[in-house]
Design a protein around this nucleic acid. Structure first.
Lengths: 224, 224
DNA sequence: ACCTGAACACCGTTCAAGT
DNA sequence: ACCTGAACACCGTTCAAGT
């Protein structure tokens, strides 16, 4: 339904802001945000770079749109779960989104110009806390604490130069070999006894910290 | 002591990696990382951009050096404090450093090629935990949790488009005025009842989350 | 050994011109 | 209304040439 038109014409698809955003995200995911240039994006869409400016104010605007789109992918806290379960699920989903779109972590623009998906996301998170019995102030504290953690974890995870367990082990071996062990004894110990253990993956550290914070928030809430 | 030399010669100071790093940090602090170009940095040092390459492999290498320099500014955990006090102090200092050098937060290179100051910092943090009674695994969990939080908080803080309380209030007013309040009721509530209250500063949220995490770690440690 | 000038292959963006 | 070609003012970096 509803595509192309006149016979014989090349199957030129109409350029839209949405198509541009989708394409930009695909490029950034696949080859990194630093390789996302207006010329490259135009190429990807079969169009000159300058045409993009008919749908996007400038590159900054493009990046804002991409970030808001990532927020749209995050699972909203469910109304049927209690606050802790709901917040846990959306935090896991949040981190997963930042893991698929690593470039979204470093872009500091998130706060300055939140898009509709970002606003909806934030509203739902705060609402979940308020309905869970959090005061306005405690909800603000909790929101800040949890999201700082998720953001920071994703950033640290994305800054690691490996993804698979094998790569991780290989890198840790190299790291250890180049490390003056007598100068950094605790770092060496942790690398050998923790990082180099079979089955280690930095990603697994995520849930420890998340549950640490959620449990602590519950204690603050119930005033134990 | 020890400067210039031959009379009549212009007071050309010798270019060194250290002088380059210091100058680069000053530029990035003052006008943002995006305005730090090799040409601009050369200008700052009274030298052509190409001369920099005699002391720095490339721009990436420059950024690595800058980040390691920031780590060097962070107060190391003190040996005479208990683990909690020591870690608290260095975390406050860590955040302060990231606040003075906002560009250091977004640079994902920190993990990939840690410099000597970064390694020393990490070693001392892990050592503090180990000597405080943390197992290797728990030390790793704690390290990840605390630093993710500090990083993420700094990132959120840096992404805010204001710094002073007045600016903050003004921005919040504008934000609120443009916000469809019936669509985002909880966000509106939090803005009015929390953010717009006199004396509010986002930076004050830092210690709530930090103490939340430190307290929770203590509970995990003593097995309560 | 260190610094420079010119050049290369890129950027984001503007603007007049096309359809 | 949308797309384009040429141009502008930038980038990081290489390389041969200077001292």
């Amino acid at each position: 339904m509803g595509s192309s038109g006149k016979t014989g014409a090349p199957p030129r698809v109409r350029l839209t802001r949405d198509r541009i955003l989708r394409s930009a995200i695909a490029v950034a995911d696949a080859t990194g945000i630093e390789s996302l240039t207006m010329r490259r994006l135009g190429e990807e869409l079969g169009v000159e770079a300058m045409s993009l400016y008919n749908h996007v104010a400038n590159k900054e605007d493009l990046l804002y749109g991409m970030i808001d789109s990532v927020f749209g992918e995050i699972e909203l806290p469910s109304h049927s779960d209690d606050w802790k379960t709901a917040l846990r699920k959306r935090s896991v989903s949040f981190r997963a989104a930042l893991s698929v779109h690593p470039w979204a972590t470093g872009l500091k623009d998130s706060g300055t110009r939140p898009g509709p998906a970002t606003l909806k996301h934030h509203d739902r998170v705060i609402g979940t806390l308020r309905n869970g019995g959090f005061s306005v102030a405690l909800a603000a504290h909790a929101f800040s604490a949890v999201d700082s953690y998720v953001y920071g974890f994703a950033m640290q995870e994305n800054s690691l130069p490996f993804t698979t367990e094998e790569e991780s082990a290989a890198m840790a071996q190299v790291f250890l070999a180049n490390l003056p062990g007598d100068e950094y004894p605790y770092l060496a110990e942790l690398t050998v006894q923790h990082v180099l253990q079979p089955g280690y993956a930095y990603a697994d550290e995520f849930e420890f910290g998340l549950d640490l914070i959620l449990d602590a928030l519950e204690r603050r809430l119930t005033g134990a």
